[in-house]
């Protein structure tokens, strides 16, 4: 019974996940007429597949070339993730192990302060950030985008890691202290190595959120630091080219899927439970 349910669930859910994706794959090979003149599903039977949607985004036809944007996205995502995970894991460890606070303002409130930074709709922050980066002369630069992204990523990283550190028994820290480590060394040498699943989850989220950020990229970059999502959205002209956009949607995911395979390996390797014994 449970097994049937499980199999059924896997099947149905995978189908649900794949439906829009496979539709995007099919659409990316359609000529415009096969989209606009009526629904078509099966290549070769209902329409003659063409590569023009893909050629349009890969710089082959001269329409658009997403590779420079891919590079921008990679640089910005990598650095903003690394920085926010480094700063975030220290803060999270601190919040998990020490008592902070002032009168009524305690650890949970500080954690909530971090998380609450994500509440503001990005559109509202786009103008102050514009002035901010303009003053620093960082508009349309990688560094500027990295700084802005950190503000969005750190809340997620801190919130996730506090939970993970909380689940690591304190005895481990104490053992390390007894062996003569100071708290820093204890954290670096003992805690971090066994928190790989937590770190990889946090980094995965950071990468995804940084990669897919649109509003800031849309407003704070022009040509030099334009990221992939901003460049993809900019393909949407007076006539929506569903075929090109489908191709670019897939083009945007492929690097992340590769990343997911790597990150997943860290995630699935044991867990804290094994390490703590």
């Amino acid at each position: 019974m449970a097994k049937t349910f499980r199999t059924l669930f896997i099947f149905v859910w995978s189908l649900f996940v794949l439906t829009p994706l496979s539709w995007a794959v099919v659409t990316s090979f359609k000529p415009p007429a096969a989209v606009n003149n009526g629904v078509t599903f099966i290549p070769w039977v209902q329409f003659k597949p063409t590569l023009s949607g893909w050629k349009d985004i890969l710089g082959i036809s001269g329409y658009a070339n997403l590779f420079p944007n891919l590079w921008n996205s990679v640089v910005i995502t990598t650095f903003s993730t690394i920085i926010s995970v480094i700063f975030g894991c220290f803060a999270a460890y601190g919040l998990s192990r020490f008592n902070y606070g002032w009168k009524f303002y305690k650890n949970p409130d500080i954690i909530f302060f971090f998380v609450s930074q994500r509440i503001m709709p990005p559109v509202v922050l786009s103008i102050p950030f514009f002035l901010f980066l303009k003053t620093l002369h960082l508009l349309d630069t990688h560094l500027g985008m990295i700084i802005i992204n950190i503000a969005g990523l750190m809340p997620i990283v801190v919130w996730l890691l506090v939970d993970f550190f909380n689940q690591i028994p304190r005895e481990i820290d104490e053992l390390a202290r007894l062996e003569g480590c100071n708290p820093f060394m204890a954290f670096l040498k003992v805690i971090l190595p066994i928190s790989r699943p937590g770190l990889s989850v946090a980094a995965t989220f950071a990468v995804i959120f940084a990669w897919n950020d649109l509003f800031f990229a849309l407003n704070l970059t022009f040509t030099n630091a334009k990221t992939l999502p901003a460049a993809v959205v900019a393909l949407n002209g007076t006539v929506t080219p569903f075929w090109t956009l489908s191709a670019s949607a897939l083009f945007t995911i492929i690097p992340l899927v590769g990343f997911a395979f790597v990150a997943e390996r860290f995630l699935s390797r044991g867990g804290f439970a094994g390490a703590s014994r």
Partner: peptide
């Protein structure tokens, strides 16, 4: 989760 929401919305 890895797809760009704005682009997926068009799909």
């Amino acid at each position: 989760m890895m797809t760009t929401p704005s682009v997926m919305a068009i799909v």
